[in-house]
Amino acid sequence: MNSRVEHHAHDIPSAEPQPAELVALMGEFKDVDSVFSAAEKVRHAGFRRWDVHTPFPIHGIDAVMGTRPTVLPWLVLAAGLFGAAGGIALQWYCNAYDYAFPISGKPFWSLPANIPVAFECTILCAVLMSVFGMLGLCRLPTHYNPLLKSERFRRVTNDRFFVVLDATDPVFEEQSAEQLLRNAGAKYVERVED
């Protein structure tokens, strides 16, 4: 799973001593309330590239962070329509066009008989798009992430909450960012290096 880059960095550190680069600052919070108010402060400080990492989705955090609604429902709608059209076209091609099938004097082409399969095709395509569209929009799977190297960050999937400020953000400046996180009530602030 660990990408080659990481192995390289761990196995032969002395071969090419590259200075670790600061990619982000991470502040740890111990409950929902404190991370919630910290998120408000970070947003007001003008940050754009930052994130709140939590063990479960927090109510209202999207509004605080200014997360725009995802385009996913539209993608799913498109996939569902594609599935419906595809399901009907498949049945028409198979039973009415390419291989006309005379069965008990029934018409070769009648929509009511084709609804169940068209329905299942609609659902199938929409389900596939919900899952893979969501993963694609989240850029998952991403098996290398400098955050995952942090020992402390492991508790993000358990009981701790983190605000992560990306170093590439235009307003990011290490000292002030650290101060911002501490003022917001972070228990620990850690440098994320890569």
Binding site: P57, T67, T70, P73, M134, N145
Partner: peptide, 15 residues
């Protein structure tokens, strides 16, 4: 899949 509990991911995940 490299899940980090990002709120931006949770947003799409919940949707």
């Amino acid at each position: 899949l490299g899940w980090t509990g990002s709120s931006r991911h949770w947003h799409r995940y919940e949707r």
